[in-house]
Amino acid sequence: MEKFNFTEHSHRRFNPLNGEWILVSPHRTKRPWQGKVENLNEERRPEYDPKCYLCPGNERSGGQKNPDYADTFVFQNDFSALVPDVPNGEFSDGELFYAKSEQGFCKVICFSPRHDLTIPEMDVTNIKKVIDLWQNEYRELGKLDFVNYVQIFENKGDIMGCSNPHPHGQVWSQNSIPGEPAKEQERQKAYYQKHGRTMLGDYVKRELELKERILVENDYFVALVPFWATWPFEAMILPKKEVANLIQLSDEDKKAFADCYKKLTVMYDNLFETSFPYSAGVHQAPTDGEEHPEWHLHMHFYPPLLRSATVKKFMVGYEMMANPQRDITAEQSAERLRSLPAEHYKTK
């Protein structure tokens, strides 16, 4: 009987961070996709757009005017999903109907005053300024009594819900720990209680030994395709040392983080020679006043492109009704991304 080989045969992979499984079907693609060549008429944006509500000096959609900022800029979202002045309250009707009020803040972070840049086109020094701002927002929002979690994220590309092409991200903070970090909280805590070490600290060490899924590595950080990756070219950025939150990062750490952030996103853009869409977010320890030695800071990247600049992969059918499934393996994705040039395709 043929011997099982997970690079050839269908199998399930376990995600230790959330306790869920993914079905992998590598026999459907015996080798990494070469990608469809498309001549896209990619929009060339100006450095400054007088109609953009995020550009320096412009009026935002809520009527406020942006300062003439030169680096990064943060402001309270004019149409926040969470607001701080919500009265405490709840609704309960037996075991099946329950709701509770939720306070919070939603902020927008402009990465650069330039309208025409994205993270892979910015230099490492300026990307570090974005991480500096993340660090400050986590610190200041986390001091508020009613804020127990701070979620930092970036949506890049209109297919990922980005409503403005100006380079920006968001920071949402709230009473409760949201669903995805809550799953990771539970799993990481159980691992730490059992081993006395962080789950992702052990994971990073083993990935660095194997070298199969590593994309970028420097002295302090690593970018890799996780063994349990769900999206076609999913990736993570993690510190090599056990760091629970952004506050614990030194200047050198933040430079290394920025270096990985840039190099990974350049890989993405070069894959299909397009501004590669993704949703990315930082997961870190809650700000609930408790010690969280189990937490290991990390950043997820979920890009939807599958075969080309226009062929997307979304969770549908079996994936929505059963569990996630993918054809191209994590190892194939990593090999494909590693093979790309380091120079951004626009600079050719």
Rank of each mutant, 00 (worst) to 15 (best):
E212R: 15
A190C: 06
S176T: 12
S275T: 09
V171C: 14
T230N: 13
E217F: 02
P277V: 04
A258P: 03
N164A: 03
A190Y: 00
Q174R: 13
E184A: 07
V147R: 07
M160I: 05
G157E: 14
G161L: 04
G201H: 10
F233Y: 15
E273A: 06
C162L: 11
V243I: 15
F233A: 11
Q174P: 06
F221K: 00
M236E: 11
K194T: 02
E209P: 02
K254Q: 11
A256K: 01
V266Q: 13
N164K: 02
K240R: 10
E212Y: 03
Q248Y: 04
R187M: 14
K156E: 12
E242K: 09
E273W: 11
C162G: 04
R213S: 03
P178V: 00
L215H: 06
A182W: 13
F146D: 03
K205G: 09
V266T: 14
A285C: 02
G169F: 06
V243S: 10
F227D: 05
N148A: 04
D158C: 08
E207R: 09
H283P: 06
E234D: 05
S173N: 06
K194G: 00
G201R: 01
W228M: 08
K262D: 04
E252C: 01
Y261T: 08
E242L: 03
Q284N: 05
A223D: 08
A285W: 02
N155F: 13
P239H: 11
K255E: 12
V150E: 07
E242R: 07
E212Q: 14
K211I: 02
S279P: 07
L264A: 12
P167V: 00
H166V: 01
